[in-house]
Nucleic acid binder design. Structure first.
Lengths: 112, 112
DNA sequence: CTAATGATTCGATAATCGTAGAAATATCGA
DNA sequence: TCGATATTTCTACGATTATCGAATCATTAG
């Protein structure tokens, strides 16, 4: 993972509503959540949420997938994993858990 | 660690020069680096770097300490550790490494 | 005390971000 | 096809961010 994408990912998460949205998507797991559901959960106007989801998508942290008229968003665990790996390696003095910093489920669970 | 401070920390790191500065400080370790040294390393005007260091300080990621006329900055490993912990717990589906996500040295090595 | 050094704060400016209503786009049901 | 539903894109605007020279503050040496 490169510094450029890391910065975009950090920036994407560095905002109240986006962090909340991402957390909700992580919690939702594989099946994800529709834009509407998310907008209601976060109490945001659709257009505002849409803006934030676009930022997260642009940062590669979430994925979009159409299902009927709904757009279902879901967290990209591998991307989050990459971010954690970068931070561990570059911002944590190459500490102990560097090798374990697979904070995903994803690699394992997505495949399963 | 609370969402509010997490957002400030993420925002602080989500910028080219600040991420570079923080990485340099992490690498520098305990002894830290002076503002001047850092400014030269990053090729930034003093006033610009000062602005960024203030942001990092405000986010609690770095510490300041005067030494003669120089201000020495150093990374706060515990804060970074806290950030990693939050992300692991809240943004990684409570994955495997949650308990290990002590990405610091700090707690152990600072004391030593 | 004065000059020199290291660094921050001030000030102005350009650029980006967040917000949310309104208009447009896509899909589905009848 | 037409209307309803789900969402995005457009638009405008206020707020925040990044930049950096100039002015200021703090510390030390002479």
């Amino acid at each position: 993972m490169q510094a450029d994408i890391v910065i975009r990912a950090l920036g994407a998460l560095a905002q109240e509503h986006r962090l909340a949205a991402f957390r909700a998507l992580v919690q939702a797991g594989e099946s994800g959540l529709s834009a509407g559901t998310l907008a209601e959960a976060l109490q945001l106007p659709n257009s505002s949420l849409s803006f934030h989801l676009a930022q997260l998508t642009n940062a590669g942290l979430i994925r979009q997938q159409r299902q009927g008229r709904s757009l279902i968003y879901s967290a990209d665990y591998a991307a989050m994993n990459g971010l954690m790996g970068y931070l561990t390696k570059n911002c944590c003095a190459g500490a102990v858990c560097a090798a374990d910093a697979n904070c995903s489920i994803s690699e394992e669970r997505n495949v399963a």
